[in-house]
């Protein structure tokens, strides 16, 4: 599998709102998220802040920073979910799930921050933009959570091969299966279908889950991340 190079020109090109919208659709971010995106489109003419660029770094540290970036995004999202109207009126089961997911993602993010910082430079806190999400709306929150969890699973699945150190691979493995457990639970409560937890949207005819390259993942994630991320140093 060849990894497309993540270049600055590609970043700029993808800032075109139309490109981004079609990319979102193709990348399976989900109907709910696509709808949300459209709802938030009026902001798209505004320039996105690009004065701040964060470089993930290279080698295994770069891959760990990449994971840290995604965990930051998820943790920030669930932190806001817990403050929103959906959570306030959610069922006991859904409150439990959201409480757990917020805790898990925050633990992942704080772990990566500490672990990376002990030997290298961890990326700083990223800016996020959740203006396209209605935190009072169940379908908006669950649609976005589903997209983030599926995205996280595909990101770790695609990044495993980029790691050189087996201990880091095992750490990624320990986390990705929890993300997959999350994804299945969110999909299940977000759909009446008894097959939603592992539907053909995410599991192919060989029984394989999605795997995405860092550039594919970051192209999706940057809809919600205002900090510009330079992933050019990541292993290919």
């Amino acid at each position: 599998m060849k990894l497309p190079k993540f270049t600055e020109s590609r970043v700029v090109a993808d800032r075109n709102p139309h490109n981004r919208r079609s990319f979102l659709r193709k990348s399976g971010l989900g109907l709910a998220a696509a709808g949300l995106f459209l709802a938030g489109c009026e902001d798209d003419d505004d320039p996105i802040m690009i004065d701040e660029t964060v470089n993930l770094g290279s080698g295994d540290v770069g891959v760990l920073n990449y994971a840290y970036a995604l965990e930051q995004l998820e943790a920030a999202f669930y932190a806001q979910v817990l403050q929103g109207g959906y959570f306030a009126s959610a069922s006991a089961e859904e409150k439990q799930i959201m409480t757990d997911l917020e805790a898990h993602e925050r633990a992942h993010a704080e772990f990566f921050e500490a672990a990376i910082s002990s030997v290298a430079t961890a990326i700083p806190a990223l800016g996020v933009d959740f203006s396209s999400i209605d935190f009072d709306s169940r379908s908006s929150v669950l649609g976005t959570a589903q997209a983030f969890e599926d995205l996280g699973v595909s990101a770790y699945n695609g990044a495993g091969r980029l790691l050189q150190n087996p201990d880091f691979l095992v750490i990624a493995g320990k986390i990705v299966s929890v993300e997959a457990r999350h994804a299945a639970a969110i999909r299940s409560i977000n759909s009446a279908s008894p097959r939603a937890f592992a539907s053909s949207e995410v599991v192919d005819s060989n029984g394989l889950d999605l795997a995405r390259t860092p550039s594919q993942v970051l192209n999706i994630a940057k809809t919600f991340i205002t900090t510009n991320i330079d992933a050019s140093g990541l292993p290919q």
Partner: peptide, 15 residues
């Protein structure tokens, strides 16, 4: 990568 892709499907099943 394929093994990881199976691994996460097993985790979805487990959940």
């Amino acid at each position: 990568t394929a093994a990881l892709q199976i691994h996460s499907v097993e985790a979805r099943h487990a959940s």
